[in-house]
């Protein structure tokens, strides 16, 4: 067990290095001079050379990479070209907002996903199962940015029940748990919850149906174990997988929130990314992506570790 845990953690190191390298190279993938976005169009050759040296772009790539990683390890991801503020500050503030949105969405999605999955798995081929299956196909097929728009149309533009955009009244960027802020959270969170709901429902349905069809469940029923016992047994066996799927979905939502945040003008990482891309603010782009990807790697690691602790049979390689 300890060997597996150590292995899994050691195995993460090359991934983290690789992820950093990809993020670093993103800037060099960008067409043209990396300085283009900083320089005024009429900049002199002199100024250009000076800036090249200041940003370290005159150094060989590997040296730039090592410097970048070294600074990143100390929490310094450079300064945003657009705002001049440290990237780390900007990203961390945005991450909090995205995390709130993604967590609430995961919880909603998890709750309904479990519900549909369990019911569908228990009563296979019944109308309720078919409805649940249809809902899960809907969840993975719907363009969620469009779903967001439709919800805004219905609940904001037509019914005028909920605010269409922003995280709080008056464009408040700081989230506080009061009713005004919660009202802003409802639509984006529901929109976002549709994807994990579909996936969790699908996974759990298959899992529950599989567990119920196994010989030992039949044997438990034959021995006179009540349905409550069987249910507890199913829960116990489905829990590790359910948790794993939930963890991964949270990671996907964190990284994939850009479209929904754009629809709802939610001041999170997706919004930040959007701004970084259109202002060609490459340090900000690089930093945001690095933080999100590392979050995802970390979450993957935690999911694996928790899952193997819960169920020693699962030792994924």
């Amino acid at each position: 067990m300890l060997v597996y845990l150590t292995k899994r953690i050691v195995y993460t190191i090359p991934i983290v290095v690789g992820v950093s390298l990809v993020c670093f190279l993103l800037v060099h993938l960008a067409p043209g001079d990396p300085l283009v976005s900083v320089l005024p169009p009429d900049a002199s050759e002199d100024l250009k050379q000076q800036l090249l040296i200041i940003y370290g772009f005159d150094r060989p790539y590997w040296e730039q990479f090592l410097r970048w990683v070294w600074r990143a390890l100390h929490g310094d991801l450079g300064n945003s070209i657009a705002s001049g503020r440290p990237v780390t500050t900007e990203v961390l503030r945005a991450v909090v907002n995205t995390l709130i949105l993604a967590t609430v969405a995961t919880v909603i999605g998890f709750f309904f996903g479990l519900l549909f999955g369990f019911v569908g798995g228990y009563y296979r081929e019944s109308w309720i199962d078919k409805t649940a299956s249809a809902l899960s196909v809907f969840g993975v097929s719907v363009p969620h940015y469009w779903l967001g728009m439709v919800l805004v149309i219905i609940f904001s533009s037509q019914l005028n029940w909920l605010p269409p955009t922003g995280a709080g009244p008056g464009g408040s960027g700081e989230w506080t748990p009061d009713w005004a802020h919660i009202r802003h959270l409802i639509l984006p969170a529901i929109t976002m919850s549709v994807i994990p709901m579909g996936i969790i429902a699908r996974t759990i349905r298959a899992l529950v149906a599989d567990i119920l069809s196994q010989d030992f469940v039949q044997a438990m029923r034959a021995k006179g174990l009540g349905e409550r016992g069987v249910f507890l047994h199913v829960v116990k066996n489905a829990a590790p997988t359910a948790l794993a799927v939930m963890g991964l979905q949270l990671g996907y939502l964190l990284g994939g929130s850009i479209l929904i945040e754009t629809v709802f003008s939610w001041p999170g990482t997706g919004f930040l990314l959007n701004a970084a891309i259109f202002q060609r603010d490459l340090p900000l782009l690089q930093g945001t992506i690095l933080v999100l990807a590392l979050f995802f790697v970390l979450l993957n690691l935690i999911v694996d570790l928790v899952q193997s602790l819960l169920d020693p049979r699962i030792q994924r390689s």
């Binding site: 690789g18 992820v19 067409p31 891309i277 999100l292 995802f296």
Partner: peptide, 23 residues
Amino acid sequence: RTIDIFYAFPSVLLAVALSGALG
């Protein structure tokens, strides 16, 4: 192992990051 690195990015993020950088 190289492919694992790309797996470490959620797909939406990777698509946005790449096309954001490429223009």
